[in-house]
């Protein structure tokens, strides 16, 4: 009897904790309802309609699943871009994650010049997401066209990779091996520039590993190699999960899909809405699968 009453007390809809929790979240709640859920719902409605701009504003004509059907079965470029963004990205996502972990491990130890190197590694955080970087790359491309005709000078985006290419060709390896190494070097440039925030996340994650674990392993006589695989790597797994998901979202948001959608938004809002929802669904499934698979192996301290 007593227990039941207690249960009922707990089941009351609002306890003091509830109200405080909601109060802390009040601004976010308002924002998410009016500036996220409402526009997203409108966009879902759009995707099931045909939109024509009439005299009095926007007119909607319901057409059911036609926009989705068209995107999936008639628009070859859309399906191609969607599949392309899936297949092109997975290895670069994995590479970015491991590359940034590797760099974070290098940057984490105590050594002279650590501050300087860390500052340099933050350059991609500042530039990596911005127009400036794409402009630098674009300008590089423009110049290499020019360079062909005027024999002019070193291009910006090309320069770094060209240096690497020269370095590689000086080793005098067989041609097919060289080609492989060369493409690796070219993608190293992109890799280094796309893993800015991930390096920050990994350094933060490394700092979260309590130092007593390392002390214990040292006393027990473990080598550095063993310490890494038994302590650092497992305890970095939550960060790795975060990084993977962040990289996936970044990769998708920078893919040709988004450009296509942005282009369509100007002319056919209803079709672009259907496209983004299909696209969001795919990203969501992708993230969900990765989360499900990786979080099974993730180890949390506590």
């Amino acid at each position: 009897m007593k227990g039941k009453r207690k249960d009922r007390k707990r089941d009351r809809f609002f306890t003091k904790d509830d109200i405080t929790g909601y109060l802390f979240n009040l601004p976010f709640l308002i924002g998410v309802i009016f500036l996220f859920i409402k526009p997203m719902a409108t966009s879902i409605v759009y995707s099931f309609n045909r939109i024509t701009v009439g005299g009095g504003g926007i007119e909607l004509t319901p057409i059911g699943w036609d926009n989705y059907k068209y995107a999936l079965f008639s628009d070859a470029s859309f399906v191609k871009a969607l599949i392309g963004s899936l297949t092109d990205s997975w290895w670069s996502i994995l590479l970015t994650t491991f590359f940034s972990m590797f760099l974070a491990l290098l940057l984490n130890g105590k050594f002279t010049g650590r501050l300087l190197f860390r500052c340099i590694m933050f350059l991609p955080v500042i530039f990596g997401t911005s127009v400036v970087f794409t402009l630098l790359e674009k300008k590089g491309g423009m110049e290499s066209d020019l360079a062909a005709t005027t024999n002019a000078f070193v291009a910006v985006g090309d320069g770094a990779t060209r240096f690497l290419n020269e370095l590689i060709s000086s080793f005098g390896l067989p041609d097919d091996v060289m080609g492989l190494v060369r493409s690796g070097a070219n993608s190293l440039f992109d890799l280094a520039w796309s893993s800015g925030i991930q390096i920050v996340l990994f350094i933060i994650g490394l700092q979260a590993i309590p130092s007593y674990l390392y002390e214990v392993s040292k006393i027990e006589g473990a080598t550095q190699w063993e310490t890494f695989w038994k302590i650092t790597f497992p305890l970095l797994s939550p960060t790795m999960l975060l990084c993977l998901i962040y990289t996936i979202i970044r990769a998708f948001n920078g893919s040709s899909m988004i450009e296509m959608v942005e282009e369509n938004m100007r002319t056919q809002v209803h079709y672009a809405s259907a496209q983004t929802w299909l696209y969001t669904l795919v990203v969501f499934l992708y993230v969900f699968v990765v989360y499900y698979v990786v979080s099974k192996k993730t180890i949390y301290l506590d």
């Binding site: 509830d18 405080t20 996220f36 979202i249 969501f284």
Partner: peptide
Amino acid sequence: YRFKGNGLLFALVILTIIVPIQTAQIPL
């Protein structure tokens, strides 16, 4: 704070990260 809808709120946070803002361009 443990309150009703806590998990839902967190899911919404994740959703705001995942869904590209271009989706809501016209309504916004």
